[in-house]
Amino acid sequence: MLVLQLFCMLFILRQGLADVETPTTESPNRINGGQRVNETVPFQVSLQMQRRGRWQHFCGGSIVSGQHVLTAAHCMEKMKVEDVSVVVGTLNWKAGGLRHRVVTKHVHPQYSMNPRIINDIALVKVTPPFRLQRSDVSTIHIGGSDRIGEKVPVRLTGWGSTTSSTSSATLPDQLQALNYRTISNEDCNQKGFRVTRNEICALAVQGQGACVGDSGGPLIKPGLQPHLVGIVSYGSSTCAQGRPDVYTRVSSFLPYISQVINQDLAQ
């Protein structure tokens, strides 16, 4: 039976928020594909929690409104809002950018991890509102209801671990990117997963893929109008070993996203 892992920093929570190593040398086998991001990714956020007076990255997310971030439910389910902040407008999660306080979280009411992971989606509301007039901070288009099929070029960005072992995760300071392609849900199931219609799978070559710390982050369909198609959810117990990465399918949750945002902004 294939062992699954959620791609958030669960090992930090299990080990009493133990300090995470950061890389001191360049690694040729970065789990996120070996490509450092040098251009602005204005919708990318770092979800951070405080540990011994320092902020620590634990999940990613995407700006979808002037005050909302879309992320994975498993990132926020057990977190207190007062313990979490959102950093935007930077490629380095440790430095620069703007920090926003989380005031409300909305974990999907049907989110579950048993008997399978479903509805792994959440939104958080921040204060103050994002400075969307800045060139390095903006929302990402969440597209229409059209379903993304197989063999579609997609792009993952995140600060996930650059080692394959989840017990000794090593986070890069600089944002990483991976360009790869979706596979069909049928193919994903044949490779050992039990995905639903509300999920997307993507697969790269061995040595490339999502890992611990990437959870909640964006899967983008590039183009003239890039749009968000997936949220990093889970994968195999050891990262980037030739098995698919599983994403929450954003197009399946557009009514839920709109309902939460409109409800929050009306208050």
Rank of each mutant, 00 (worst) to 15 (best):
S85F: 15
A210F: 02
L175Y: 03
L254I: 13
A204H: 00
G230R: 03
R147T: 07
S251A: 13
R147V: 14
R131M: 03
L10I: 15
D19S: 13
D146L: 12
V102N: 03
E39G: 00
C75M: 04
G144C: 04
S258Y: 08
P153A: 10
D173A: 15
L203G: 05
Q241A: 03
D245R: 01
H100P: 12
G223D: 07
H74Q: 06
Q208Y: 06
Q50F: 04
A266V: 11
N179Y: 11
L123Y: 11
S251M: 08
F43V: 06
A240D: 01
P255V: 11
I63S: 04
K221T: 05
R181Y: 15
Y247D: 00
I142F: 12
A240L: 00
S237E: 15
K80Q: 13
H100Q: 13
L171Q: 04
P172G: 04
Q35G: 02
R54A: 11
L17N: 13
W93N: 09
S145V: 15
I63G: 09
V69D: 07
G235R: 07
D83T: 14
G160D: 04
D245T: 05
G61T: 08
V195Q: 05
P218T: 14
Q190M: 11
K125C: 03
F253Q: 05
R134K: 08
G149E: 12
L2N: 09
R249V: 06
T71M: 01
F11G: 00
Y247P: 00
C239P: 01
S258H: 14
E26Y: 07
G160E: 02
N32Y: 11
L171S: 01
T163W: 04
L132T: 12
G144M: 06
L228A: 00
F58E: 07
P115G: 01
A72S: 10
K80L: 15
Q174C: 05
S65K: 03
Q44L: 00
Q48C: 02
L10Q: 15
Q110E: 15
A73R: 02
N32W: 09
P226K: 10
Q48K: 13
S251Q: 09
V152M: 11
G209M: 08
